[in-house]
Design a protein around this nucleic acid. Structure first.
Lengths: 233, 233
DNA sequence: TATTTGCTGATTGCTGACAATCAAGCAAAA
DNA sequence: TTTTGCTTGATTGTCAGCAATCAGCAAATA
């Protein structure tokens, strides 16, 4: 039997697809922080009912991209310095665990794949395709997480990576030292491939350390709690 | 003016309150794993419309307590050995980070509070009130997480603690060595109070290590992937 | 002028009804 | 005996409309 592609992707529920569209707009920066979202307007643009839009917005609220003021309004969330610090520290903990487990699971083929991605990253940077580089960077980290074979960790990681993207879009944040970035990735990958769990974990955690320290300093200075996300319950 | 208590608590949206009720039933074990949930039945029992129930179920699906088979059914999730392993490893990583940050933030009053909780735990165990002991155990860990002053970490932690409870209810899992438990808590608390971040992190992570190792062994033996949670997207 | 009060338009919260989809059972064909 | 196609009853997915609530403004009051 020829290999058929599942139709489930077509059949995704309407509210999920609505959420996808709105999410894409937010992560591309089309909808800036604080932008108000009207249920009726969205339902007209997406050609679905208000209830469906509502369900989509609830999902995005769970992802932290949107916040709800009961009976009053929906708006695109903003990320303060404090938020960024939270995101990067959490990322360190999650990727630390991921790298540790990945090192215990790694097989031949995995190593090739990781090294391939690192190569892609190198070329993208050398050729000045920084957009691509960022994307490959995320792919690389996600590939390591996949090796951990830990569904919940993978889900949390998707979540936190999305938050990182969100923050980068809003703040215009970009890595400052690409050479350092390459070297750190290289070291991390080799530690994973070598099966050195302790080293892999340590490298994964240190990977964000520079940003975390910078952000911690900014927090002390500016108190930067401008737009904190409120809990939606 | 006399001090009035906010009405906001009363004003929680209906779907949230519906979710609370269903969640409570699940976490008390009234609804066992695999139990089918009918939207119409729930809407009659809770005296709200089906749409509201739907929204509540969607929230619970996000929390992993319930899973959805599109166009077909909702059911209470089950937790396999693999799930338990995931939960405890994630918990270790999160509480490790929490303990580290808590040690950096701790103040006088906090130390007293922590020691008080540890005392309560001790008494509960000595007096055989194991139900209470479990509850205090969670409170203690949560108190440490709060000291980290990290909103996202706190939210993830709430989430993972709920998963732990969920798993305990379904598997009848209980701590085996209460003396050890007390000693570990004592050491962790004192490390936090002393501001020793490295030690606090290490102790927090080791706190689950026995369970993790046991579960990892069970995984190898039984392959126990009976009822894994499927991704709801 | 400053403050309070009541009104109004706009927006979200919730509901009941209709449409789409599915699992299960049965009968006919192979 | 197995497969296929159909029917049916039940259940979920989506929609449009009514109810509850809010922010803002204008009138009233001091």
């Amino acid at each position: 039997m020829a290999k058929l592609t599942s139709l489930k992707s077509e059949k995704r529920l309407l509210d999920r697809r609505a959420a996808d569209q709105i999410r894409a707009h937010i992560l591309e920066g089309v909808l800036p922080a604080g932008e108000r979202l009207l249920e009726t307007q969205l339902s007209e643009e997406l050609e679905v009912s208000r209830g469906t839009v509502r369900s989509a917005l609830a999902q995005l609220a769970n992802e932290g991209l949107v916040q709800q003021v009961a009976f009053t309004r929906w708006e695109v969330s903003g990320t303060s310095t404090v938020d960024a610090w939270e995101i990067y520290t959490l990322r360190g903990a999650l990727e630390g665990l991921g790298a540790r487990l990945a090192a215990a699971n790694v097989a031949e083929a995995d190593g090739a794949r990781l090294r391939g991605l690192a190569d892609d990253l190198l070329h993208a940077i050398r050729e000045g395709r920084f957009q691509d580089a960022t994307s490959i960077d995320f792919d690389l980290h996600t590939a390591i997480i996949e090796l951990a074979r830990h569904e919940r960790l993978a889900e949390q990681h998707r979540f936190i990576v999305q938050q990182v993207r969100f923050h980068m879009v809003q703040s215009g944040f970009l890595p400052k030292d690409y050479e350092e970035l390459i070297a750190e990735h290289k070291a991390l990958i080799e530690a994973v491939i070598a099966g050195d769990a302790d080293k892999a974990e340590k490298l994964a955690r240190n990977h964000n350390e520079a940003e975390v320290k910078l952000l911690a300093q900014l927090m002390k200075q500016g108190g930067g709690a401008k737009r904190t996300r409120v809990k939606a319950s």
